[in-house]
Design a protein around this nucleic acid. Structure first.
Length: 802
DNA sequence: GGAGTTCGCATACC
DNA sequence: ACAGGTATGCGAACTCC
């Protein structure tokens, strides 16, 4: 029987000691089907140069290797001697086929360090990755497949318990063209009494999709809206949730932080209430793998935690100050959470329940909208890195790069390098840092008409231009023969260029996502080579990349300088200089001139023209501060970098005042008027007119409270919270303000108050440790001494300012 | 016990 | 631990007399 098939989700199981892969996907009619295929687990043995002629001898020695574990016998089934490449060199290798992939590593060890063997490889590559690579059955691509029905008793009754009835055994497959995949997405969110699932109940569960909304609860509430369905108790509510998900039959079930909260909470609650939580299409419960954050896998439905993908792929390019649902949804889709005061939970009226249900539903709705927004990116990452959607949405940037490499190595007939283990990591980390980017110290001042050039994907183009990678380094220098890493990176850069052009033409979300995915992968590839956990780690390549980047930026700076321009700033891949009355066209000519001299694929680009910019001294008062400046472009749009305005650990009052002053200066080109802005704030501060919310300081707690060597104010605040019985977890933002206390104390930590504590704010602190430090250096550029103006020449007592 | 310095920490830039 | 190094700047903790 022939079918069209697009795999979405992959998993595997054992039968009679061997490995089988099962895929859930859609057929040509859009129906969900399951396709089962066998997988022949294998790894590689690479022979030493001098023993290449002894391949058959080695085969003879290893073909009887057996390994027993957990009443399972694994053995070598077959071998194949093949000419391969490894790290760019031709090698003679033996592909060793074994019974079970779980034992591949053990068998590789069992074979041991024979004198003929140089290396053993690929036993550490996950089964699904190997399957996708070797059988070339890629996620989210269409195939024409030849299948036969899988009988009920086949493969040990594999299909037993499946709610999905169409289960096939794969005979052959052929890649074909097909329409883009529009997955059916269902978002969910839960509200609970507390944080401990063994004790606290789930109060309600919301579900949302296009044309579908539902809130399940067991809390009685008069006059609840139609979308609310009230069940008898918590257990029945959870059962109903499972039923609703199965009825809706989504490709993707998505939550926000649902790996870490919603799914495990529901599972624990289901166990506590002794009801089934068989969400999987195989009739089983979600599986949770151990790790820092648990991962919830539902068989046949891709469980997506939108938070994880956003954090690893988008976070560094986003403006949001937290990665909470509210901030992220506001930035990406312009929607916000509703308000609900959780203190009310202790005593809920009907109207409060209605509010909670609405709040619950809104969370699912914005999670759904957010998922629609990031879906093109998720889709492109999946296609480019060729890993299943489930893994793509959870993978770190380094593993995206690595997947991209691994799945493209066949073009180079290349065996995959191993992951570092135990000692390797310690050793790699012990080398310490290498020299990185060049940052020029600016001269503080207000500048007019500034041009900014920057290199496009500088580090990636350096790697390609100079052929810098693990396999092209011979211990001393980098070979001229192009290595697979630079070639694949060059491919990424070219594809990115093409995608960018395509986007300029059709401007679809998908075209944009394609361009974005290529760019992100290319930009992460430099960090990947310097990352101790990388298979293709090369400290030499990373250090050389930084070095050649420095050389190139210096050469470009010299060219610009020699053409008569004054450079005012440079950081890593950008150069800012004064236009100095020259026409725009002359600047573009200069750009072309510089570009002519650049080696390889390196390219300098015009970032923008700015009408003004300000650079300040650092707090030490010596020279100019790096990574701290504000520019205004010709359209009047501000670009503020490094200033307190863009730092979330400064209070709103300070940030707002500083940004107002920067804006005024950059728009007017003079300091006049800014003193008044400051005076007003100081006056309000002294008269206690400032709202406490504008004085709240937010700092992230990044480890366990007891692990701190130095007890900063936010640690003091966290301790206070714990004393009250509030939960403090590492990674959360701690809010506090500095208040007045009696008695002598030096430590600011002794004046820390939590947001709801009753205390007067500390005028002296907010004046001398917040507002003034943030604006002083800006005024200083204009020769204005703020403290002198504020207290009329006296010290900073400011007593005459009421 | 105060002044000066170093260190730990969070956050930003690219 | 889950890409890298370069920077600012606070506040606590230390050193020194």
């Amino acid at each position: 029987m022939k079918l069209k098939f697009m795999p979405i989700d992959y998993d595997y199981f054992d039968f009679e000691g061997g490995n089988y892969v099962w895929m859930i996907g859609r057929d040509g009619k859009g129906e969900k089907i399951c396709v089962v295929d066998s997988y022949d687990s294998n790894f590689w043995i690479i022979l030493k140069k001098e023993f290449e002629g002894d391949a058959s001898k080695v085969v003879e020695k290893i073909k009887n290797v057996k390994f027993e574990r957990d009443s399972r016998t694994s053995e070598v089934l077959n071998t194949k001697v093949v000419e391969k490449n490894f790290l760019g060199h031709k090698v003679k290798a033996i592909q060793v086929f074994v019974t079970n992939h779980k034992d591949a590593h053990a068998i590789a060890s069992e074979i041991g360090d024979m004198k003929e063997i140089e290396n053993r490889r690929e036993y550490d590559v996950p089964l699904i990755s190997k399957y996708i690579k070797e059988k070339d059955i890629l996620p989210l691509q269409w195939y024409e497949i030849e299948v036969e029905n899988l009988g009920v008793d086949d493969l040990g009754g594999f299909g037993e318990g499946f709610s999905l009835k169409k289960i096939f055994r794969l005979k052959s497959s052929k890649k074909i063209e097909g329409p883009d995949f529009l997955p059916l997405i269902l978002a969910y969110d839960i509200e609970t009494e507390g944080m401990d699932a063994t004790k606290s109940s789930v109060l309600s569960i919301s579900l949302y999709s296009k044309g579908y909304k539902k809130v399940l609860t067991w809390k009685k509430c008069k006059g609840a809206p139609d979308y609310v369905e009230t069940l008898k108790n918590e257990g029945e509510m959870i059962e109903k949730f499972v039923e609703e998900v199965h009825k809706f039959d989504p490709d993707i079930l998505v939550g926000y932080f649902s790996d870490g909260f919603d799914l495990p909470f529901l599972k624990t609650a289901a166990d506590r209430e002794k009801v089934d939580f068989n969400l999987g299409l195989d009739g089983k419960d979600p599986k949770f793998s151990r790790g820092r954050i648990p991962v919830g896998k539902i068989a046949g439905i891709v469980h997506v935690d939108a938070y994880r993908f956003i954090r690893s792929v988008f976070a560094q390019y986003m403006q949001s100050e937290t990665l909470g649902l509210n901030d992220v949804a506001k930035e990406l889709v312009g929607e916000e959470k509703e308000d609900f005061d959780f203190k009310k939970l202790a005593n809920m009226k009907d109207s409060d329940w209605k509010e909670l249900f609405s709040y619950n539903l809104q969370d699912s709705k914005i999670t759904y909208d957010l998922t629609q927004k990031i879906l093109p990116d998720l889709y492109e990452f999946t296609k480019i890195t060729k890993e299943p959607l489930f893994d793509t949405c959870r993978a770190s940037m380094s593993s995206h790069v690595e997947s991209y490499l691994i799945h493209n190595l066949d073009k180079f007939n290349e065996i995959i390098e191993k992951k570092p283990i135990g000692n390797d990591i310690g050793e790699r980390r012990s080398y310490g840092k290498y020299e990185g980017a060049f940052v020029m110290e600016p001269i503080p001042g207000l500048y007019e008409n500034i041009v900014m050039f920057d290199f496009t994907s500088m580090y990636a183009s350096v790697i390609v231009t100079y052929n810098l990678s693990k396999s092209t380094f011979n211990g001393k220098e980098f070979s001229k023969d192009e290595g697979f890493f630079p070639i694949l990176l060059k491919d990424l850069i070219e594809k990115r260029k093409a995608a960018k052009k395509e986007f300029a033409k059709d401007s679809s979300a998908m075209a944009k996502a394609r361009s974005n995915a290529y760019k992100l992968l290319a930009n992460a590839s430099y960090g990947y080579q310097g990352f101790f956990g990388a298979r293709y780690y090369s400290r030499e390549a990373a250090a050389a990349t930084a070095k050649m980047a420095r050389e190139n930026i210096h050469a470009a700076m010299k060219k610009i300088k020699d053409s008569g321009y004054k450079i005012i700033y440079s950081d890593t891949d950008s150069i800012a200089f004064l236009q100095d009355g020259k026409k725009d066209s002359q600047i573009l000519e200069l750009l072309e001139e510089v570009n002519k001299k650049l080696p390889g694929i390196m390219e300098l680009d015009l970032e923008d023209f700015y009408s003004r910019g300000i650079f300040v001294t650092p707090r030490s008062g010596i020279g100019g501060a790096k990574k701290k400046y504000a520019l205004i472009d010709r359209k009047g749009k501000l670009k503020i970098r490094g200033f307190e305005t863009v730092r979330r650990d400064w209070c709103t009052l300070t940030r707002r005042l500083q940004s107002q002053i920067l804006e005024k200066i950059l728009k007017d080109g003079k300091i006049e008027g800014s003193v008044e802005l400051l005076k007003k704030v100081v006056k309000d501060l002294k008269n206690r007119k400032i709202a406490l919310s504008d004085l709240m300081i937010r700092t992230q707690i990044k480890k366990g409270v007891s692990d701190y060597l130095s007890t900063g104010p936010h640690v003091v605040a966290a301790k206070k919270m714990m004393e009250r019985g509030e939960k403090v977890t590492s990674g959360m933002l701690i809010y506090y303000f500095i208040g007045e206390v009696n008695g002598k104390t030096k430590r600011i930590g002794d004046k820390v108050f939590l947001p709801d504590e009753k205390a007067d704010y500390n005028i002296d602190y907010y004046l001398n440790n917040q507002v003034l430090p943030a604006v002083e250096n800006i005024f200083d550029v204009f020769g204005v001494d703020v403290r002198e103006i504020l207290d009329g020449g006296k010290n900073s007592t400011l007593s005459d300012f009421k």
